[in-house]
Write a protein that binds this DNA or RNA. Sequence first.
DNA 1: AAGTGCGGTGCACGAACGTGCAAGACTGGT
DNA 2: ACCAGTCTTGCACGTTCGTGCACCGCACTT
Lengths: 319, 319
Amino acid sequence: MTRDSRLEELYTAARMYYGDERTMESIAGELRVSRSTVSRMLRDARDAELVTISLRPPEAQRVEELARRISRLYGVQVHVVPSAPGDDQRERLRSVTEAGGALLDEMLEPGTTLGIAWGTTMAALLGTVRSRPVPGLRIVQLNGAINTEGSGLTYIATVLAGAATRWDATVHQFPVPAFFDFPATREAMWRERSVQRVLATQREATVAVFSVGAFDAEVPSHVYTHNYLTREDLSSLRSDGAVGDVCTVFLRADGTYRDIALNQRGSGTAPDRLLRIPRRLLVASGSRKALPLRAALRAGVATDVVVDEITATSLLSLR
Amino acid sequence: MTRDSRLEELYTAARMYYGDERTMESIAGELRVSRSTVSRMLRDARDAELVTISLRPPEAQRVEELARRISRLYGVQVHVVPSAPGDDQRERLRSVTEAGGALLDEMLEPGTTLGIAWGTTMAALLGTVRSRPVPGLRIVQLNGAINTEGSGLTYIATVLAGAATRWDATVHQFPVPAFFDFPATREAMWRERSVQRVLATQREATVAVFSVGAFDAEVPSHVYTHNYLTREDLSSLRSDGAVGDVCTVFLRADGTYRDIALNQRGSGTAPDRLLRIPRRLLVASGSRKALPLRAALRAGVATDVVVDEITATSLLSLR
DNA sequence: AAGTGCGGTGCACGAACGTGCAAGACTGGT
DNA sequence: ACCAGTCTTGCACGTTCGTGCACCGCACTT
């Protein structure tokens, strides 16, 4: 008796027992052996891992159901991270960025150019990356991060550099303000070769990762707290109907953004340019982000989305 | 009692029973219910699919073991298709192309540019694609297919068009000979704008799919049977030590190809250009293909490989 | 040819399990 | 407050299952 044909027999017995839910007695009759032999065959089949019994926690089902519905509505791949009832917003952000980081890690292959839009969520996400060299990985910032007081650059540079070290990647920083004071400056800068070089690298990105900002998120977005915007800016945004931002480009609830005044002065990568990046991962946590998240999805900026369960529920309950 | 908390209880019981292999009696004691209740809880847990019992045919294991070994040796993702002992070569080709087609389908996302190298295997593979529109999908031929008598184009065009229809894709044909008679003609043509355009599209490919040709495969490769090569060509190849081809570019057993004379006249995409395509799927069936397959893997042309079990075994038994 | 060790098999018994049944708990209506 | 209907639980019984033990056949040794 070869090893293989024995496995075949074990498999047959296992199929009759677990698959067809027959009794050992009846299987024994058919195979012309004693019932105890069948009992032993089944044990061996389990040991040989011909039969695997897997447990799936109930949250997996809730979460898959949510993911399916969002996926159907907006045509994106969705990963919903389960959140225990007790979890506060910080804990949910942690688990979402962890899941997002793992997913991002899967997307990186040798030679990838990765675009990153700066923000609170991304800082947390980059903190989760484990050490794994990705040959030829380039990281390029998708938006400027300098604000009106001091640069804010050091913090960003530190976090980016940390991740870059663990991936063994090169970083292409984008040393411009998040928002210029005058549209003309932006236009002028965009003609500069140093900026052109970064913009070119952005165009070569094959993977992008970013979040959405909300005006009143639980964990406030960088843009709305760190002196990036004046009071006048905020009221201008409100009157333009903006609900949040992607890559520091502001969006209305319906996903439009072109005629929002402030966008003329922002340095972020707008949806039309983002859409040229093949794989675009949006990571978001916080039910307040549901509205801008929907705007982002309507603008089609993401191919993959990672959200926590509560945010997913909020998103689906928007009317 | 909410629906969710009941599921939690069911899950707890299921974990204790199937996970920790405890007896219903003991679980009943801990949960302070009767044993029969536990029995019913377990039934409900199974019904709710908190517990799934899956059967894995023994061939899955053989196949995964082979895939793991090849994967480790050549650093590619491998899918080995099991073949029943009775299967002849045609049947194996069918199952491999079917699996390859399914894998390719997963790789296609909106906006993909797909490079296809023409050949017998690809014809079979394209025949398996199911109808699923992929917005913005472009298909570009990676090698010319015209031979010395008649064009051979109609057949290719038909098969390509069939797949393109089912994907709702546009086809960019490459209307040049598989092999020019004179290297100079190739150089001249390569300067033509019409050819340049196709070459540019090839460079934009994000997914490539191709097979390997072997001099003496069971199902003979197109190139060696359809008047693509003269007797002189074949003897020249032999003296250059070629063992087969990828994309109608000939390779030696060690994966080198640059100084093989005939390659100066071929229109196929050479490994160096192929390597710039992010995702490269190699589909091959037939133990005779093992040698050129190894050459292809040594040249690093594939990121993903689909082979049948027998071919995989042959590949691993090469010394 | 007899001896020896070993993997596999059936028997028999006790443990583990599924399920019909009746009693109790709960719900919603009068 | 009472009742009818439904759902849940525990009990009891018959079934199904795991396993220690004795036995058998085979291979290999002496």
